[in-house]
Nucleic acid binder design. Structure first.
Length: 356
DNA sequence: AATTCGGGGTT
DNA sequence: AACCCAGAATT
């Protein structure tokens, strides 16, 4: 299904971008490869409004790729704390080290080398190359998928491999257009994302303002509300766990670092157990105190994309039974120190809300 | 190629 | 509560 691309497609899009695009995003000034890369990683599955303050804080703390590579992982995770998808932070850190070792401390200007970096896939690599160096590569993120499915009337959930394959073919065809000047690939990439984010939105798109409205299939056929095809629904399983909020006489909280893989990898959390008995067992093994007098706090509901988790917090005064502190993955943490640790959002909320 | 992984915000 | 969001890694 090779769809025809009007010769003035990119010209119309760029003209719209010059007037109505976003030209003042934090990573655009200055637009260095490091800042472009960082922004692209932060913006994976994350809206601009959410990522922007994190970006500013991150580059203030770690202004260059070499700063990032030299920083402890805990510092990077702390800067990421609250942003979600923490594998992105670990991959970012690993990729920075890789750039120092293999690419002279710079991002490689090569699509394959970029894709070889952890956390960088085809679309992100193309976004970096086009935005940092105006190289001619097509991206396919959520915004572009939405624009393309509507403009070309592509049916089927865009996350399906077969549909995604069609969409890649389409965006490649668009970017190959001779009407797209060499020096405007960065703008072209940004224009598509801006169009998708600000105008061709999921619900109630502003078609009357769209530079592509005249030849948009969804618009012409009145199928704007049906495209892109929504994700097939499925009910995620409900899981339960208990978390132990143990506090010593000085008001410090016992926290542990999760393993480097799996959920909340490498983040600091409260000790967690599958059920009440296991929680009691963990307490008896590591702590002593008035477990019977523990306070059961209101349960926390947290949703992941593939399951739901309800956490039952139990707050208890305790002291260490053996030595705690000689193990780097389990230690007492003062409240003032919480801000500097990478902590999952629901746990941070629990510790902060129920404060002193 | 298909499946799995995964956190916060919005509606 | 369902759904969305500048996807990548794994199998």
């Amino acid at each position: 299904m090779t769809a025809r691309v009007p010769p003035d497609f990119s010209a119309r899009l760029l003209a719209w971008f010059d007037v109505s695009g976003r030209h003042d995003l934090p990573w655009q000034h200055p637009r260095t490869p490091y800042r472009v890369w960082l922004s692209e990683i932060m913006l994976q599955q994350t809206q601009v409004k959410t990522a922007a303050p994190y970006f500013q804080r991150f580059v203030d703390a770690l202004p260059t790729l070499r700063d990032l590579a030299a920083a402890p992982l805990d510092d990077v995770l702390a800067l990421w704390s609250g942003l979600g998808y923490y594998a992105r932070a670990r991959n970012l850190h690993a990729a920075a080290k890789q750039c120092v070792e293999r690419h002279g401390g710079e991002l490689p200007r090569d699509l394959e080398a970029l894709t070889a970096l952890p956390g960088v896939g085809r679309s992100t690599a193309a976004a970096i190359a086009s935005q940092a160096w105006n190289d001619r590569h097509a991206i396919l993120d959520g915004n572009v998928k939405r624009v393309m499915t509507r403009y070309h009337g592509v049916e089927g959930y865009p996350g399906l491999p077969a549909v995604e394959r069609k969409l890649w073919a389409l965006v490649d065809e668009h970017v190959a257009s001779s009407q797209l000047p060499e020096h405007r690939l960065a703008d072209y990439t940004q224009a598509q994302m801006d169009l998708g984010a600000t105008l061709c939105t999921r619900s109630d798109p502003a078609c009357v303002l769209c530079p592509l409205q005249d030849d948009c299939v969804a618009r012409r056929e009145g199928r704007i509300a049906e495209l892109p095809t929504p994700k097939p629904g499925k009910t995620p399983p409900q899981k339960y766990a208990h978390v132990l909020w143990a506090e010593d006489a000085q008001g410090r909280i016992l926290m542990l670092r999760r393993p480097p893989t799996g959920i909340w990898a490498s983040l600091w959390t409260l000790p967690q157990a599958d059920d009440a008995e296991a929680a009691r067992g963990w307490f008896d093994e590591h702590l002593s105190g008035d477990y019977a007098g523990a306070l059961a706090l209101p349960p926390i509901d947290h949703a992941f994309s593939h399951y739901k988790l309800q956490l039952q917090p139990l707050r208890v005064r305790a002291e260490a039974r053996g030595k705690i502190g000689d193990n780097d993955d389990l230690r007492w943490v003062a409240r003032e120190e919480l801000a500097s640790l990478g902590i999952p959002a629901p746990i941070r909320k629990l510790l902060t809300n129920q404060g002193a």
